[in-house]
Simulated assay, not measured.
Amino acid sequence: MDRYYEIKQKLLALCETEQEIKAVILIGSQARDYCKADEYSDVDLIIACSHPEKLLYEDTLIRKLGMPVYSFVEDTIAGEKERRILFDGSLDADMIILNEDRLKSHLNSHSIDEIMNCGYKLLFDWCGIAEYLDMITVIEKTSYIPLSEEEFKNQANDFFFHTVWAEKKIRRGELWTAIMCINGYLKSKLLSVIEMYEHIVHGETYDTRYGGRMIEQWSESFIAEKLKNCFAGYNSDDLLSALESTKQLYIILCRKCAQSYSYKTGIDEIDN
């Protein structure tokens, strides 16, 4: 069942009556045939119009799609603006809103090819956008480029430095600072070696998504299991436990990566 069917139908009906809207392109998981949308997915749209501010900052037309509960505007790809709206029923819509000339320019210059390659469907076209869509360059999936030995060594030392730093913060009672390091900064370093390890196991073109998204699906089962103990709650004992679990998982993966690439880090826990 398409949870966004009604919103899309209302948008298309609006397109027929409002000359303000020139084109609508559905992008993202709702538009592709792989990694399809599920019940928790949002709907992503590119909307070309005569006066973008009417859709970005005013609610007159937006309310014809549904009742917005929360709404805000943020910067997005290619210097454009995106309005993100949560409608009644927990339906969230992300709309890149721009004028038709800028959309044509982006398509002509290939500046948004990356997001278009993730899937798109032209829902409405009143300004000849279809011919510009033919210009989209298919981006072949690139092979993973591993860290160089120097980058790997630097990151490992960075990680271990911050494990000591975070423990000091915990023991001093700076729990906010410690938890931001353990659950945030150190996890970014851990994610890097998880991705590196997965590409060793599955090959250079293995899809590890981005930013840890769907890590439960693409990482090895033992990694997903160990991650359960790597995130801390807001108390000293939990922080110390999560810090140690994060460190131990990092050591396991870092060793395997170092052995695979014959890297040295200067850190005994990794090199020996």
Rank of each mutant, 00 (worst) to 15 (best):
D2Y: 00
I7C: 00
I7H: 02
I7W: 00
K8E: 01
L14P: 02
L14K: 03
L14Q: 08
C15E: 11
T17P: 00
A23G: 11
V24I: 08
G28C: 03
Q30K: 05
Y40Q: 06
Y40R: 05
I47H: 09
I47G: 04
S50C: 15
H51W: 04
H51G: 09
P52H: 08
P52K: 03
L56H: 03
E58N: 11
T60P: 01
I62Y: 09
M67L: 10
M67D: 15
P68H: 07
E74K: 07
E74C: 05
T76R: 02
A78N: 02
R83F: 12
D88I: 06
A93G: 01
A93V: 15
A93Y: 07
M95S: 08
I96H: 08
R102H: 03
H106F: 10
L107C: 07
S109F: 02
D113A: 06
I115L: 10
N117V: 00
C118S: 06
L122V: 15
D125P: 13
W126H: 13
W126C: 15
C127Q: 06
I129E: 05
A130K: 15
I136E: 13
I139N: 12
T142Q: 15
T142W: 13
T142K: 15
S143I: 13
S143D: 14
Y144C: 06
Y144N: 04
P146T: 06
S148L: 10
E149P: 01
E149T: 08
E150I: 06
E151Q: 01
E151N: 00
N157P: 07
F159Q: 09
V164R: 07
K169S: 13
K169R: 14
I170K: 05
E174C: 01
L175V: 04
L175A: 05
W176P: 00
W176M: 09
M180R: 11
M180H: 13
I182D: 05
L186A: 04
L186W: 08
K189Y: 08
K189Q: 12
L191N: 03
E195H: 10
M196S: 14
H199I: 12
G203Q: 11
T205V: 08
Y206L: 14
Y206E: 11
W218Y: 09
W218A: 09
S219W: 10
S219F: 13
I223S: 10
K226D: 12
L227S: 12
N229D: 15
F231M: 02
F231R: 04
A232L: 09
N235V: 02
D237G: 10
D238I: 03
D238A: 06
L240Y: 05
L243Q: 13
E244D: 08
E244A: 05
T246Q: 14
K247E: 15
Q248A: 05
L253G: 00
C254H: 01
R255L: 01
R255C: 02
K256H: 06
K256E: 14
T265Y: 01
I267Q: 04
I267N: 05
E269Q: 03
E269D: 07
I270C: 01
D271K: 09
N272S: 11
